[in-house]
Design a protein around this nucleic acid. Structure first.
Length: 668
DNA sequence: GGGTAAGCAGTTTTT
DNA sequence: CTGCTTACCC
């Protein structure tokens, strides 16, 4: 085994794989074979006779988790039973479910996604008197999130009612047996703090803990890790501070420093050989990132050839730029016999994708756009999920409110208010209140509303009975959809544009197919409907369509972890990268913007085409665009001859910065 | 309860 | 310009 590993891995990778008796900090530069190293490490542990159940591997995205467990089972020739490879959040959910009673939950727990959370907050706001629009649901949501994730550090209170909204919100969640995404990390910590014996059992069980993309961990995630690893102290974290691009959502790469402090016996390994990019591309990226002050020193190198110089062009406007990119793709696809899926077009903001999409379509080049609205977050799909969740747990108020008048059945604002006040005075759920109002005498509802409510309750009762019989839920769902005439509802909603209606109903059908496939595949008694629906809110992304032959158009953020032989980077302009808004919020964000640009550059294996425009349409008007200051940080020698004349002069850059600063000042 | 008109924002996004 | 939310009126 060891000899084999020596052949397959370089010196540093080998050490990273086989050092298994102490905490490890692996700084893995872009393209340094990180995923490969991690999977080999797990396989090595298993080969050394470590029981799969004492290994815990944590990732951020479901994609990463899936990839990792697939690659491990390839190496070990079959999946290792008991091995935990999961995202932080689903691991948290597992813990919460396993110890529900200790945390005050009984029965099935519902995971609220961002939209559910907002809906719930809106409910709370409506009920909190004296709030005359002082706080928006969004503000409250970010306060709540901050409060939960800051772990005792004070959250900023922009409004005196926020603490009360927070407690109200928490009470509501508890009442519905629901948790939000933050809770998935927070509740395990609460559990471990209040029940040291539970913590201890997990500490003993997980002898080896691995964390991928460590630079993306939040403080709360790090704290959970520290708790879990405290006994065996065998925590291996892998990350690259230069690729930390998610600080705006709580990632804190200073966790790397904390890790070194908390685990002083740590051994540090740097993976610095890049296997992805040609010399020019890698060197250019190195020059750029060297301008960041706050980073770990490292020097990525490659054994690859020098390769092509970087291309850079200036266009008049975005249409010209997009036309040129599509033409280039065409040309390269023919000349280099590349496939369309060898090309990636990476942009800083979603708003830049429109023109590019348009041109790709016009040129009949197949493409996929990644990101965008998650399939399971679409309104029509969420409606259907709400119906199913109500079936699993009728006392979930958020779901009841969602379906109350969808499709329209004459149960609007006034009925909802009546339900709310009845529920509040009786301390019951909305569903119980609805039963009372629908069948109780006397009822404050007008007879039409009463009737509609009766029908709705009978529908829910019917659905619950159907599920109890053990017949396929997907069949029940089709009949339910017929009963509520959901298709007609969608068509009516989009009477002006029937194609949208058809498309939306198609999504509903697709969801039904998912459900029915899950029912066929899943093992008896393993997962309940509620569990399945929870998993959907945790794995909510639509599968990216990577199956061959398509150009990928995506944001730079979405491109992390991917690579393309040929990368196009349009709109390398000041105000776009670095993004004006991000700098305005926090001037220190320049370094993160630079990392973002670095991530973009290092996605390319062989060819890199940068471009900018001298003017760009911005909202309704057109405005002049100056080059990104980052271009100055890449020496001209890396570019083709066309570059120097188009690069900005030092004076130009300074002027742009001065302009930007004064603009920001005047706005305040 | 529903429909229309005015109002407003338009970075990145996973779980 | 567009897409979405809010507010108001019927």
């Amino acid at each position: 085994m060891k000899e084999q590993l020596h052949e397959l891995l370089n010196q540093q990778q080998y050490r990273a794989v086989t050092t298994i008796d102490r905490p490890l900090l692996i700084i893995a530069g872009a393209g340094s074979g990180k995923t490969r190293m991690i999977t080999y490490r797990i396989a090595y542990l298993l080969h050394q006779g470590v029981s799969p159940s004492s290994i815990l591997a944590l990732t951020f995205t479901n994609r990463a988790a899936r990839e990792m467990s697939e690659r491990v089972s390839q190496l070990t020739e079959g999946p290792a039973a008991g091995l935990t490879v999961s995202t932080f959040h689903s691991f948290g959910l597992q813990l919460i479910q396993a110890h529900g009673p200790l945390l005050g939950y009984r029965g099935s727990i519902t995971v609220f996604d961002t939209q559910d959370k907002l809906a719930m907050i809106q409910e709370v706001l409506r009920q909190t008197p004296g709030l005359r629009g002082g706080v928006t649901a969004g503000e409250a949501a970010s306060y709540i999130s901050q409060k939960k994730t800051s772990l005792g550090n004070s959250a900023e209170e922009s409004h005196p009612a926020l603490p009360r909204i927070f407690t109200e919100y928490q009470d509501h969640l508890k009442a519905f047996q629901a948790v939000d995404f933050d809770d998935l990390l927070l509740l395990p910590i609460t559990l471990f703090t209040s029940r040291p014996e539970v913590l201890s059992s997990y500490q003993k069980r997980f002898q080896y803990i691995l964390v991928d993309e460590f630079q993306d961990t939040s403080n709360i995630q790090y704290r959970l890790l520290r708790m879990l690893a405290d006994y065996h102290r065998n925590l291996c974290v892998v990350g690259d501070d230069d690729q930390s691009i998610y600080s705006w959502r709580g990632a804190d790469y200073s966790n790397i420093t904390s890790f070194e402090k908390d685990f002083p016996e740590v051994q540090e390994i740097k993976l610095e050989q890049n296997y992805r990019s040609t010399g020019n591309i890698l060197e250019a990226a190195n020059h750029l990132i060297a301008n960041n002050r706050l980073r770990k020193q490292k020097s990525l190198w490659t054994g690859e050839v020098q390769g092509l110089p970087l291309h850079f062009r200036v266009f008049e406007h975005e249409t010209e730029e997009a036309e040129s990119i599509t033409a280039k793709i065409r040309e390269l696809a023919l000349k280099n016999s590349w496939n369309y899926d060898d090309f990636g077009i990476l942009v800083r903001a979603n708003s830049l994708m429109g023109t590019l999409e348009h041109e790709l379509m016009a040129a009949a080049i197949p493409y996929t756009v990644s990101g965008g609205m998650s399939f399971f977050a679409r309104k029509e799909v969420k409606d259907v999920i709400a119906y199913l969740r109500i079936t699993a747990n009728p006392h979930n108020d958020v779901d009841l409110l969602r379906i109350l008048n969808t499709p329209r059945r004459g149960l609007g604002k006034s009925t909802a208010e009546e339900l709310r006040s009845t529920a509040d005075s009786g301390g019951s759920s909305l569903y119980s209140a609805a039963e009372m109002l629908a069948f109780g005498e006397p009822s404050p509802l007008p007879s039409r509303g009463k009737h509609a409510l009766q029908e709705l309750i009978e529908l829910i009762r019917w659905a619950r009975e159907e599920v109890k019989t053990g017949k396929p839920i997907s069949e029940m769902l089709s009949r339910l959809l017929d009963r509520i005439a959901y298709r007609q509802f969608l068509m009516q909603e989009h009477a002006k544009n029937p194609r949208i209606g058809e498309w939306k109903y198609g999504n509903v059908e697709r969801f039904r197919e998912f459900l029915s496939r899950w029912e066929e595949d899943h093992e008896e008694g393993e997962l309940s409907l509620a569990d399945y629906l929870n998993r959907i809110s945790l794995t909510g992304k639509q599968e990216p369509d990577t199956r061959g032959g398509k150009v990928s158009l995506m944001t730079i953020h979405a491109s992390k972890g991917l690579e393309f032989p040929c990368v196009f980077l349009p709109a390398v302009e000041d105000g776009i990268i670095p993004h004006e808004k991000s700098i305005a919020e926090n001037p220190q964000a320049v370094e993160e913007e630079r990392r973002l640009f670095y991530v973009a550059l290092t996605r390319a294996k062989e060819a890199l085409y940068l471009s900018r425009c001298s003017s760009r349409k911005f909202m309704q008007s057109r405005r002049d665009a100056s080059p990104s200051p980052f271009l100055q940080e890449i020496p001209e020698s890396f570019f083709t001859e066309t570059a120097p004349s188009s690069s900005p002069t030092r004076e130009e850059v300074l002027r742009t910065f001065a302009d930007l600063r004064s603009k920001l000042k005047s706005r305040q």
